[in-house]
Design a protein around this nucleic acid. Structure first.
Lengths: 145, 145
DNA sequence: ATTAATTGTATAGCTGAACTATGTATATAC
DNA sequence: GTATATACATAGTTCAGCTATACAATTAAT
């Protein structure tokens, strides 16, 4: 096993832990991270069932049922009956939810921007590529799970 | 405001949210993320008081009191009385704690390694530099807070 | 075609980590 | 020496996550 990669990944997780925490404090966000993750998944992968959503967002199915119920009350998602299976629902992001997600991302960026304002164009590119690299691998994993 | 940076940071946080979650599930870790953050801070910045630790780890002082109490029971940290202030303590990471932290980082890396095994040397460098970039800015922020 | 097993979602109840408010003891200011 | 500020501890609450399980609909078996 590649121990260098191991250490790098450990550091990456530790550092992003703190970034996440800092971001939450900076935006004074009350919506749960899992809800944002869920909206984010719906945006990038399109409508899906509660069970699939639970896998993709890495929470248990009952937790996702609750998250969806909350998002539904906010009218941030739509529940669409599955015509071929009366037990199941298709969950789709609603316009309000898309707006909320965009707004959250924006506020997050605004809150953290001062910290990163000194980045060079090259460093910006590094961060951007790293984000893509991680995103690709997470997505692959989620689809496989 | 730089909206490109804004979007990038939003994406970064979203993606690392999911990475963190995935990592926690993959290692079956029961210790709280905040405890690992705390140990990580102690390792990189050396012994400090509970109040300082709370700021650095971005939790409230009572929360940190509890985290430190838990870590103390595990003998992962040492409480050292402040000779000049009987109210205060210096919290230092203990050898056991250093080992536990190293082990956690290792397990984390091992669990995530399969996902990242296909990285080129250049991409590895990108991830590494991104980690450093974020780490630097978080640290600066924590010290200022 | 019933019965049984499986699957998709919902509900109940628990745990634990975070918070605010406040208490206690020590330090500092006047 | 009394008052205020500071450092940590305690009490009590809230909420997100979990497991276990119920319920309903589908699928499989005989």
């Amino acid at each position: 096993m590649n121990s260098e990669l191991s250490v790098l990944l450990g550091d990456l997780v530790t550092v992003t832990h703190r970034l996440t925490r800092l971001a939450a404090q900076a935006t004074g966000d009350s919506t749960s991270p899992a809800a944002w993750r869920t909206l984010s998944v719906l945006t990038s992968a399109g409508p899906m069932r509660i069970g699939e959503l639970a896998l993709a967002s890495r929470v248990s199915q009952p937790t996702m049922t609750k998250i969806v119920a909350n998002l539904n009350e906010l009218e941030w998602i739509k529940r669409i009956a599955d015509s071929s299976d009366a037990r199941a629902w298709h969950i789709a992001i609603a316009p309000k939810g898309q707006n909320a997600l965009n707004d959250w991302r924006y506020r997050l960026g605004a809150a953290l921007e001062p910290l990163f304002a000194d980045l060079s164009v090259r460093e910006l590119g590094v961060l951007s590529e790293a984000t893509d690299l991680i995103g690709d691998r997470i997505t692959v994993q989620e689809m496989a799970a």
